[in-house]
C-alpha cells in the first residue's frame, strides 16, 4: 500500500516537473505542445477511491495552471478526464475492468492505446475549448486538439511502455 502511494507521489511530482519545465516549451510548429501530465490520471490505481482521484487530478491540473498562467483550464480538463475514466476503462478493457484486475504493466498494447487515445482526445478537447473559450473558433479548437493529441498519445504510450517493469 505505502509502496503504491509513494510511487504515485513520485509520479505526480515528476510528471508535473517534466510538463512545466520541458513540455510546455516545446512549441512544435509554433503551437503544438504535448500534455503528458495526464499519464498520472491514466495510471492511477483502479481500486483507489474515485473521490481521491478527482481531488488529486484537480490538484495536478491546478499546479499546471499555476505554472502556465492559464486560469483553471488544466484543472477543469483534468477533473473531467478523471470523472470520465471508468467509462473509458470499461470501453477499452471490458471484462478486465469489471473484475477490477487491470494491471497497466501487463495489459494488451491495443487496449492500452485505445484507452490512452480516447482519454487524451477527451481531455484535450475540454482543455482547448476552455482555453480558447469562443465557439466561433471551433476550427482552431479542433485543430489544436487533433495535433496536440497526436503528440501526447505517442509520448504517453511510449512513456507508459518504457516505465512498466515486467512487459514482455
Amino acid at each position: 500500500m505505502t509502496n503504491v502511494t509513494g510511487l504515485n507521489i513520485v509520479r505526480f511530482v515528476l510528471l508535473l516537473l517534466i510538463q512545466v519545465v520541458i513540455c510546455n516549451h516545446i512549441n512544435f510548429l509554433g503551437y503544438i505542445n504535448p500534455y503528458i501530465y495526464i499519464i498520472f490520471i491514466f495510471l492511477f490505481p483502479i481500486r483507489e477511491e474515485r473521490l481521491l482521484l478527482l481531488f488529486v487530478s484537480f490538484l495536478l491540473g491546478l499546479m499546471v495552471d499555476l505554472f502556465s498562467d492559464s486560469g483553471g483550464v488544466h484543472a477543469a480538463a483534468a477533473v473531467f478526464l478523471a470523472y470520465a475514466r471508468p467509462i473509458l476503462l470499461k470501453n477499452s478493457f471490458g471484462m478486465l475492468y469489471e473484475h477490477q484486475s487491470i494491471k497497466f504493466n501487463s495489459t494488451e498494447l491495443g487496449s492500452l492505446i485505445s484507452y490512452v487515445t480516447l482519454g487524451t482526445i477527451l481531455h484535450h478537447f475540454v482543455l482547448f475549448s476552455l482555453e480558447i473559450f469562443n465557439i466561433s473558433n471551433i476550427i482552431l479548437i479542433l485543430k489544436k486538439t487533433l495535433f496536440s493529441s497526436i503528440f501526447t498519445i505517442i509520448l504517453s504510450v511510449l512513456l507508459i511502455i518504457l516505465f512498466s517493469r515486467n512487459r514482455k
Partner: peptide, 12 residues
C-alpha cells in the same frame, strides 16, 4: 471541482 476550474478560467 469542475465548476471551480471553470470559475477560475472565466475569472482569468
Amino acid at each position: 471541482l469542475f465548476s471551480t476550474g471553470l470559475a477560475l478560467t472565466i475569472q482569468s
